[in-house]
Every structure is written in structure tokens, then in C-alpha cells.
Simulated assay, not measured.
Amino acid sequence: MSNTHAKVIEFLSGLLQVDIPPDIDDLHRREFSDWDSINHLRLIMELEEMLGVSLEDEQAADLSSSRQIEALFLKHGLTLPGEESS
């Protein structure tokens, strides 16, 4: 598991205010009841602020797993707290 993946899981755990096992391979919105529509909006707003971008509606709607969030972080070169940029 990459450091970025671990940080994404930690980010989601804090955002959703639930304990998520750090060794989970991928967290899908459809399989996690706490990732409801309100929390999805919070997620999108938080990501847009962190990335300094506005996500397209389709991008925001399609963002439904921790792996997709990880890919978005990597695409935008986002470095999370405690992580070195490469």
C-alpha cells in the first residue's frame, strides 16, 4: 500500500468521521453507508479547496472510491500532510 493511499484512507476517515481500517484496499461509496450524498458533497468541496480547482459535475459524480481519489491527488500533484512530494 502506498503512502498516498494510506493518507487518502486517513483523509476519508476524518471526513466521514468513522474508523476505516488502514489496510483496506479500496473503499467504494456504494459499499459504505456513511458515504452518503451529504458527505459526498463535503468530500467534493474539500477536494476542490485542497486542489485549488473546480471539479466538473461529471468528475465529481464519478468520484466514488478511495482509489479514484488517490488518482486525482496524484494527477494534481497533491501532497498530503506528512508526505514528501516527488
Rank of each mutant, 00 (worst) to 15 (best):
K75P: 10
I24S: 07
H28L: 12
D25M: 09
I44C: 05
L55D: 04
E49V: 09
E70G: 05
Q68T: 10
F32G: 00
E83A: 07
E84C: 09
Q68V: 08
V8F: 05
S33M: 11
I44R: 02
E84Y: 12
G82T: 04
P81Y: 04
R42Y: 15
V53T: 14
H28N: 08
Q68E: 12
R42N: 08
P81V: 04
S33G: 04
I24R: 12
S2Q: 08
D36W: 06
S85M: 12
H5W: 06
L74V: 15
P21G: 13
L47F: 03
A71H: 13
S85N: 10
L51E: 03
H40L: 03
S54V: 09
L15G: 03
D19T: 10
H76Y: 15
Q17L: 15
D23Y: 11
H40W: 03
E46K: 13
S33K: 14
L80A: 05
E58N: 08
I69M: 03
I69F: 06
L43E: 00
M50W: 14
A61H: 12
G77P: 01
G77L: 08
N39A: 01
F73E: 05
Q59L: 11
L55T: 09
A60I: 02
I24C: 08
P22T: 03
L51G: 00
L55A: 02
I20N: 00
W35V: 00
A61Q: 14
L16I: 07
E84S: 12
A71F: 12
L80E: 02
L80W: 06
R67E: 11
T4P: 07
I24V: 15
E46I: 05
M50P: 04
L72G: 01
V53F: 03
K7N: 11
